[in-house]
Design a protein around this nucleic acid. Structure first.
Lengths: 140, 140
DNA sequence: TGTTGTTGTAACAAAGAACGTTACAACTAT
DNA sequence: ATAGTTGTAACGTTCTTTGTTACAACAACA
């Protein structure tokens, strides 16, 4: 199991916008060239980022811009924009209620699973686009 | 994206063994009845748990047993037994080395991604089968 | 007003993963 | 030998991911 590459692509998109929005027009072609992926893939992901309220896209004329300061955009926001809102773990659906374990497995495990998911999300919440931008500038 | 139900099924299996191994013979049929899933699915997962060294299976005669005390078996061990060893996030493969962002995106993001994965794994490492067993007994 | 460069989206295809199922060889106590 | 198991191969179905073509809708601008 792996998260789809939508997340790393979306992060790449956000970084490019943050880095270049004042230098040139960021079109889906520009982005697809940096990411090396089909422009339609970029446009779709860009669309979800726009609906999530982190970027603004100029229709017709073209161009993408951050809708918030990079300091206020976290990895978690990007992640949630491109991943379906669903529990991280797929639970088997119909454990047998006649078995003591089957009857209780959900209530025993649900909290633990949520804790795992929270741990993951908290880690992502602590990383901002601004930090990634600084890291990128340092490595350029 | 979701982790496959193999993980919750495997945990269900481990809990059943821990709970009943001294009371009755734990066969794939017994387990499939509690979990409500095909016996072959159980046998496959039981096989990976056995290869991971957490259970022992009696061939021919049948029956599954814990190979370590429940206190020493963590959710992480169960998780790793049933999930492929691969990075949690699928990175887009060929970012453009001629773009400053494309050139550095890997080195900027890899560490952050590992931190997310570690956060998840640490959370799982802190839960033992023994704790789940106690929780189950309380709720019975 | 027509042209040009965009975005948004539908439609399709290929590949892989998840899950369920049948079938059967191999094994072991009795 | 029999009966109850496990191990595993072989399918089939469904869903997700990823890439692709095609084209309508849109907005600046000559």
């Amino acid at each position: 199991m792996q998260f789809s590459s939508r997340f790393t692509i979306a992060t790449h998109i956000m970084l490019c916008i943050a880095m270049f929005e004042n230098e040139c027009k960021i079109t889906s072609n520009f982005l697809s060239n940096s990411i090396n992926v089909n422009p339609v893939v970029v446009r779709n992901i860009l669309g979800t980022l726009s609906r999530a309220g982190v970027v603004e896209i100029k229709q017709g004329i073209g161009g993408a811009f951050l809708k918030k300061p990079a300091e206020e955009i976290t990895l978690l926001e990007i992640f949630k924009a491109v991943e379906k809102e669903e529990p991280l773990f797929h639970f088997h659906e119909n454990p047998n209620p006649d078995c003591p374990v089957g009857r209780t497995i959900h209530s025993v495990l649900d909290g633990r699973i949520e804790a795992v998911q929270s741990a993951m999300e908290n880690e992502m919440k602590n990383v901002t686009l601004f930090q990634l931008l600084e890291d990128t500038k340092k490595k350029m």
